[in-house]
Amino acid sequence: MSEFTAMRRVAVVAPHPDDEVLGCGGTMARLASAGSEVHVVIATRGRPPRFSDGYMDRVMAEADAAHAMLGATRTHRLDLPAAELDGVPAAEVNAAVGACLDAIAPDTLFLPFVGDIHLDHQICFTAAMVWARPRSAGAPERIFAYETLSETNWAAPGTTPAFLPDSFIDISAQIERKVEAFAAFRSQAKAFPDERSPQAIRALATMRGTTVFCEAAEAFMAVRQIWRAA
């Protein structure tokens, strides 16, 4: 069995709706097409007065549409406060993320990169890693960090952790579905040359793909892989 087909129950942790599509939407589509369960955990929801309820209802509906396009099994919403996770006790964030991942019991985790400029991303990474501590045979066997346009590359490499990918997944057959899924986020998609534009998504996928001699790819940093005895 290849490493890719070993991913049978996958959880993608997204600090905010759309991070998961930007980071690994093509991989989600490829896994779903291969018969894997693909669960999305959206950690936060914007709250008034920063975000109106009407606006957030719209964003969550956009997420549902995008996930349906990608073949996601289920979307889980934790409704922690967006852009305010640093004000929530770590124990509460860890408990919310951990309870959700307990219920999913994934063999593979895709997480936001710990060096992303947005604190919500950093906190979600840490909370998921707290849950993923290998204290039993049920711990996830694979953990990967994904890159998010406008978050991962806007930090300060040399001062903050740099995203240095060592794992690539060919999404040549899924890149258009990824772009269409992100387009479902009408509230988030921007016109080129903004990073959150279809052209930028394709450009990054093309660059990551040519790194490993394929037409389009998503890049990841392997955080942990466990090769258990047969």
Rank of each mutant, 00 (worst) to 15 (best):
F4H: 07
T5R: 09
A11I: 07
H16P: 05
D19A: 03
M28T: 02
L31E: 05
A34C: 09
G35P: 12
S36P: 05
V40R: 00
R45V: 06
G46P: 12
D53Q: 11
Y55S: 09
D57F: 05
A61D: 14
G71Y: 03
G71A: 01
R74F: 01
H76N: 03
A82E: 13
D86T: 10
A90S: 14
A90H: 11
A91S: 12
A91C: 05
V93L: 15
N94V: 14
A96I: 05
A99V: 01
L101H: 02
A105C: 07
D107Y: 01
L109T: 05
P112C: 08
V114Y: 10
I117G: 00
I117F: 12
L119G: 06
F125N: 15
T126K: 14
A127M: 07
A127G: 08
A127N: 09
W131N: 00
W131K: 03
A132M: 08
S136V: 03
G138D: 15
A139Q: 06
A139N: 07
F144C: 10
T148F: 00
T148P: 00
L149N: 01
E151R: 06
A155I: 03
T160L: 12
P165A: 10
D166H: 12
D166L: 06
S167W: 13
F168D: 10
I171K: 04
I171E: 02
I171R: 01
E176T: 12
A183F: 02
S187T: 15
S187F: 08
Q188R: 08
Q188W: 02
R196T: 09
L204Y: 13
T206W: 13
T211P: 00
V212T: 09
A216G: 00
A216V: 02
A216L: 01
A219V: 08
F220K: 06
V223S: 01
Q225D: 11
W227K: 07
R228H: 13
